[in-house]
Design a protein around this nucleic acid. Structure first.
Length: 206
DNA sequence: CGACCGATCGTCT
DNA sequence: GACGATCGGTCGA
């Protein structure tokens, strides 16, 4: 179990990095509690030329300022007043590339995750299934909030690790991103990557 | 099934 | 003052 090095994030092809995140393990360790999950769905946001990105047109606000930092930090923001969405910032300083983590397969600390989501015990198949399905749900399960925005992924509280596991290429699928209709043409870009048939992947099954 | 809807609030105009 | 990079529940066919 090896933390990904800074060089992994500081590359310029955000789609390539996004694809390579599939199979890696996102780990949180808050107050000594370890929870983790294998990444099975991601979306790339391609900086200032991407209408779906918060940084489109070079937009800079207090909320998204961290997107312009050097790659390898977390960008977490509140969506619909309810959901804390976790992104990985990539590329170098001043190039605001981001990858939204959309789904995990739970690995460690499942009981803790169930508690955070408000269930005290694991029970049905469906419950486990929805635990880390979708960007809002996985943040809740891992205990990630907006105040974690800016946290280095080289820290011991929040990081992404490589345990040697890789999904076979055949299992990787590509599609347009979800929920970005406001982005016009860019809503059609093939920037979503996921593991085919994995029950934790969000959206409707195909 | 699919369509619709309410929750809930920080952020930007 | 409007609006989300969502979710889960409800309703009707």
């Amino acid at each position: 179990m090896q933390k990904l090095p800074g060089s992994f994030y500081k590359r310029n092809n955000v789609c390539q990095v996004a694809k390579e995140l599939l199979g890696k393990v996102l780990v949180s360790r808050f107050n000594g509690i370890i929870t983790s999950g294998r990444i099975v769905e991601v979306e790339a946001y391609n900086g200032i030329i991407d209408k779906a990105s918060h940084a489109f047109g070079g937009r800079r606000t207090n909320r998204n300022e961290i997107m312009y930092a050097n790659g390898g930090v977390a960008y977490v923001y509140l969506c619909y007043g309810i959901h804390h969405l976790f992104n990985v910032i990539t590329n170098n300083k001043e190039t605001p590339h981001a990858i939204l983590i959309r789904a995990l397969e739970p690995v460690l600390g499942i009981d803790e995750m169930l508690q955070r989501v408000g269930k005290t015990k694991p029970d049905s198949y469906r419950l486990d299934n929805t635990l880390t399905r979708g960007p809002g749900n996985l943040s809740k399960a891992l205990g990630i909030f907006t105040f974690h925005s800016g946290t280095s992924l080289g820290s011991k509280e929040l990081f992404i690790a490589d345990d040697g596991f890789v999904f076979p290429k055949k299992q990787i699928a590509v599609s347009p991103r979800i929920g970005v209709d406001y982005a016009g043409n860019d809503a059609l870009l093939p920037y979503r990557f996921y593991v085919k048939g994995n029950p934790f992947v969000s959206g409707k099954p195909k």
